[in-house]
Design a protein around this nucleic acid. Structure first.
Length: 770
DNA sequence: ATGGAGACCTTTTTT
DNA sequence: AGGTCTCCAT
């Protein structure tokens, strides 16, 4: 059997169709758990064994996680080299790479910075302020949504300002200056050599629209296009894909309309519904066999999604066992809900000899994670929160990254404003305001004034401080080409005073650890085998390059989450929002907070379209489970610090009772007599409320708890050859030897799972196991 | 210029 | 409850 046949032999008939039809347009409607990722990865592997150049394949995903996972799986099928060479990533990251190279045609440079949502909001806040508008009327969030919606539908700021309908709408809602803000916002970003998330898609469209040679180049480069989660693409994404595929027509889109959960940010289900119109010769393959879940789960999910009117017809079915009934636990309060989940996990682990990592707890909003964390801590169950306050969104990380950004791109104004007085160097709000005002009046970049403040109305001491700051940043900038990312990162962290500032405050310990963690990751970046890159002109493979700070930053810019490659080696319960769980699967799943106004969210009660999106979200949640599903809800919950009464979610009642098993929990764990599964008399509700008691627990940070189970933090002096240590990222290992002294002392450690690493002890946080 | 006290708002979901 | 913003005292 040759390689090709082997690939096909591991698939069912419909999957084979989806994999082997590589020429011409194809739409794959993939039901939940039907092996969608398998089809995508096997399809790419199949193409590679057929001799297609990986350079000509473009695979677009929605999240970094999905891209990494697919890359990993293709590697296992066809080997490292060709897997690496496939152009694979999120829409945003792939187009960012292209725009860094081609952006000069659009007036940007290679140092192009990406502004995240916080940066964008900062810009808007400044503009609202300098226009003397009421910040309560012109809320940054709202403005940004308007701008984002416009850009996602490829409407420029000028077109926005010219459109009578839009102007009328904005006037009607009492915000007539949005158009002006939009114009200034774009100008400000351009001046900062920066793009926001939506710009990456918008300008990619401009590039393909206004530069025929670019269209030609990328059409020929990306001869085979695959798009994952097609139901979640917005207009800008849709049009890029359509344009790129227009020459060769080798486009395969994979999606499931039932799992479209991003309409709120502009995703358009019509894209998948209209695929046949755009590509009349398109074939459609429907994957309907679910390999993931038990019959109970599949049946329940089907019953739920039936309540939606708009959908592509499909019958998802499974050959798997009937499985256990879906558990429903109703608790009196949010903290009790969390406790009963923790207890259920504990019990299941005992009875079925399974691991922590086989469990996932899903919730609608990030704020629900707190109660769950507390309960898990109390029961000593290790856990990991995915998403939420992601690593790269933490203040200390953003601060240090702002230094890096500013060193790379001196015009990055948001980065400049973030660090101009951090750590404090006597450049206070008054000075900064003066800089902002003068800069916007004279249309001069703030950076230029910081470098040369002589003509400004400022005291001599202040001017000296500004110059000093500029010189320092400049000195970082000049080091970029010659100093690797790790060395320069370390240098900036220290000589900017950031490290010292955090060391001064013992309460900043965790933050310091995070910054040191970032610098550790820079060391890894410098040491690891370089990513394969292409020379844009020749298509030639480049594997050797200098691991400079700007390269590091271009890799990090669009990461929204910590790398979690070693997830599976960490035995922890997983906590995440349902949105973040899309595409993943777990043996045991808990869906929490099934209450009206929470899930479905109170924000979505306005229209049936929004309720349907919430229902699809619930469908996604249910179909994450392989073996067993538990639904939980509480009768009271703290919201904004005050106690709220909650009704069970309508979604629970959409699951036929025959698939469920209902448990009611009072605070003492006492079982209550039950009548109908989900209705409670108001009187009983009151008795529940009385019993709500705050558990007495000691407030400890997750880090502390997680460390405690492994041992005590090691002093640098304790690290000697032969001892066993634990590292939060690499796990257990043995010290082979040490080298250097003082802050430069290093240890070579052989880790059980990841092999030998050299760590700088001042940065590595090692633990001596109990 | 800085820091602390108090008012105020928040919660969808993410690249 | 927790974070951010505003105002006032130092």
């Amino acid at each position: 059997m040759n390689h090709e046949e082997k690939i096909l032999s591991e698939l069912n008939k419909t999957q084979q169709d989806a994999v082997s039809k590589i020429d011409g347009p194809l739409m794959v409607i993939a039901g939940a758990g039907s092996g969608k990722t398998r089809v995508l990865t096997y399809r790419i592997a199949y193409m590679l064994t057929k001799g297609i150049n990986p350079f000509n394949i473009l695979a677009l995903t929605f999240t970094n996680k999905a891209a990494n996972e697919m890359k990993e799986r293709i590697k296992n099928l066809v080997g490292d080299a060709s897997a690496k060479a496939v152009n694979m990533g999120t829409f945003h990251s792939v187009f960012y790479k292209i725009l860094r190279v081609e952006g000069e045609k659009l007036g940007y440079t290679r140092n192009l910075t990406v502004y995240d949502t916080d940066d964008a909001k900062g810009v808007i806040k400044n503009i609202v302020k300098e226009m003397n508008l009421d910040p309560k009327v012109y809320l940054p969030n709202f403005i940004l949504q308007r701008i984002s919606a416009a850009k996602s539908s490829l409407l420029s700021a000028e077109e926005y300002a010219r459109s009578p309908e839009i102007i009328e709408t904005d006037a009607r809602i009492g915000k007539p200056h949005i158009a002006e803000i939009f114009l200034r916002y774009n100008a400000r970003l351009r001046q900062s050599d920066a793009m926001d998330f939506d710009d990456l898609l918008y300008y990619m469209n401009v590039l393909l629209r206004d530069f025929p040679e670019m269209l030609y180049k990328y059409q020929n480069r990306f001869r085979y296009i695959l798009v994952d989660e097609y139901q979640d693409t917005n207009f800008a994404q849709y049009l890029i894909v359509k344009k790129l595929a227009a020459a060769h027509h080798n486009i395969c889109v994979v999606g499931d309309d039932a799992q479209s959960i991003y309409a709120f940010r502009g995703a358009n289900i019509q894209n998948i519904l209209n695929f046949k119109k755009d590509f009349p010769s398109a074939e459609t393959v429907k994957l309907e066999q679910n390999y993931r879940s038990t019959q109970n789960i599949v049946n329940a999910a089907n019953a739920v999604i039936k309540h939606n009117k708009k959908q592509i017809h499909k019958e998802v079915w499974t050959d798997n066992d009937e499985g256990k009934k879906i558990n429903v636990i109703r608790s009196s309060s949010d903290s009790e809900e969390a406790q009963s989940i923790a207890f259920s996990i504990f019990e299941t682990k005992q009875n079925e000899h399974v691991n922590n990592k086989d469990f996932a707890i899903l919730y609608r909003t990030n704020s629900q994670s707190r109660a769950l964390e507390e309960a898990l801590m109390k029961m000593q169950i290790p856990y990991k929160i995915f998403g939420g306050l992601s690593f790269y969104k933490r203040k200390e990380i953003k601060n240090i990254l702002a230094y890096f950004r500013l060193a790379i791109n001196n015009y990055d104004e948001e980065a400049l404003l973030r660090v101009i007085n951090y750590p404090q160097r006597g450049i206070g709000a008054t000075t900064v305001d003066k800089l902002k005002v003068t800069s916007s009046q004279n249309n001069v970049r703030i950076w230029d004034y910081v470098q040369n403040p002589d003509n400004l109305d400022l005291g001599a001491a202040t001017k000296a401080k500004l110059k000093d700051f500029a010189l320092r940043i400049k000195s970082f900038s000049t080091m970029i080409p010659t100093t690797d990312a790790y060395e320069l990162g370390k240098h900036i962290a220290i000589s900017s005073g950031v490290i010292q500032d955090m060391k001064a405050d013992i309460a900043e310990k965790d933050r310091l650890d995070n910054v040191e963690g970032l610098i550790d990751s820079m060391k890894e970046f410098v040491e690891k085998e370089p990513e394969t890159e292409f020379n844009e002109e020749t298509g030639e493979l480049i594997t050797e390059y200098f691991p400079s700070l700007d390269r590091f930053m271009s890799n990090v810019a669009l990461l929204t989450d910590e790398e979690n490659k070693d997830d599976e080696s960490q035995d922890r319960v997983k906590l995440m929002t349902i949105h973040a769980s899309k595409g993943l699967e777990f043996d045991y799943v808990y869906i929490t907070g099934l209450e009206e106004n929470l899930f479905p969210s109170s924000m979505s009660l306005g229209s049936s379209a929004e309720i349907e999106e919430e229902r699809r979200l619930f469908y996604v949640a249910v179909t994450r489970a392989r073996k067993h599903l538990t639904l939980t809800c509480a009768q009271t919950r703290y919201k904004f610090g005050s106690l709220q009464f909650c009704e069970p979610s309508r979604f629970m009642e959409e699951i036929p009772y025959k698939y469920m098993n209902v448990t009611e929990k009072a605070s003492a764990g006492r079982k209550l007599e039950k009548k109908s599964p989900l209705s409670f008399s108001s009187e009983r509700d009151k008795t529940f409320v009385k019993k709500v008691a705050k558990p007495a627990y000691q407030k400890v940070t997750p880090q502390e708890v997680n460390l405690k189970q492994f041992g005590n933090p090691a002093e640098v002096g304790e690290i000697v050859p032969d001892i066993r240590v634990y590292h939060s990222k690499f796990g257990y290992g043995q010290v082979l030897g040490t080298d250097g002294a003082g802050p430069d002392k290093r240890a070579v450690i052989k880790f059980d799972t990841v092999g030998e690493k050299t760590l700088l002890l001042a940065y590595a946080k090692l633990i001596i196991p109990k």
